[in-house]
């Protein structure tokens, strides 16, 4: 019996090792960058299965400047910081807002673009975005975003908050009428309003500034990586690379 047990343990170890499932890699030989892949036009996956979008272009440009080999890793949004902390990758370039709350857990580079969070609702809804006007409405946002935190902190008692795994799913539900309004990044909505699905919708109310811009998150102990990213960021801003990428997605500067 003992031999069988030993055999089982051995076979198990062998399965894992032979399949190359657990492959130890030493830190520093490449930079792994986490992004979401469901946040157009900043990061998305196309029909060939490739990651693309503004964040991805910026990530590749930064890697180019740093002379580093980079690997992009797709990760669902609500686990994107825990996965960074669990060492699944070394930096998050996924349109993440720089906030004090997040700074308790991770470090940020300088901002690489700026945004406002805005409400969007069906055209002609005349929605009033004060807490009185929103009373009883269904408002959607993506889970684990500044928009979601804002709703939870300020309107939890007044509105019915619906939190989605991805911005795309929130868009779907706004499009099909499940939501009265959605709170999200203004630039993402700007892009969505141009699609067929978003044609019947428009911004309502004033934009909210809930962050210190959008930055790249790294683990607190990785100060060298953060400094390298900052230098590379300054370099692509200075040499026109950033401007070129910006122009691919927006006819105005988003920095």
């Amino acid at each position: 019996m003992r031999r069988i047990t030993l055999g089982l343990v051995g076979a198990l170890a062998l399965t894992l090792a032979v399949a190359g499932l657990v492959n130890p890699t030493s830190a520093g030989d490449k930079v792994r960058i986490g992004t979401e892949g469901a946040y157009p036009p900043f990061n998305l996956i196309d029909e060939s299965g490739e990651l693309k979008g503004f964040d991805v272009d910026i990530a590749l440009a930064l890697c180019d400047k740093m002379g580093a080999e980079c690997e992009l890793v797709a990760q669902d949004w609500d686990g994107i910081i825990p996965a960074l902390l669990a060492n699944k990758y070394d930096a998050i370039i996924a349109s993440m807002s720089i906030t004090d709350e997040r700074k308790k857990s991770v470090d940020f580079t300088d901002k690489y673009y700026s945004n406002l969070v805005r409400y969007v609702a069906p055209k002609g809804s005349g929605l009033d975005t004060s807490s009185v006007g929103l009373a009883g409405k269904s408002i959607g946002a993506q889970r684990a975003t500044v928009a979601a935190s804002y709703l939870e902190d300020n309107l939890a008692d007044v509105v019915s908050i619906k939190l989605y795994d991805t911005q795309e799913n929130a868009n779907l539900d706004l499009g099909n009428g499940r939501l009265d309004a959605m709170l999200a990044d203004g630039l993402v909505i700007y892009d969505w309003l141009k699609t067929d699905e978003g044609a019947g919708f428009d911004f309502v109310g004033e934009g909210l500034s809930l962050d210190d811009g959008i930055g790249i998150a790294v683990r607190k102990e990785d100060t060298a990586l953060r400094d390298n990213l900052n230098q590379a960021l300054a370099a692509i801003l200075a040499d026109g690379t950033y401007e070129k990428i910006n122009a691919k997605y927006f006819p105005f500067s988003i920095y």
Partner: peptide, 12 residues
């Protein structure tokens, strides 16, 4: 005594 990071991929 191994001090690098060990990757456990989504597959594993």
């Amino acid at each position: 005594g191994y001090d690098g990071y060990v990757e456990v991929s989504p597959f594993v």
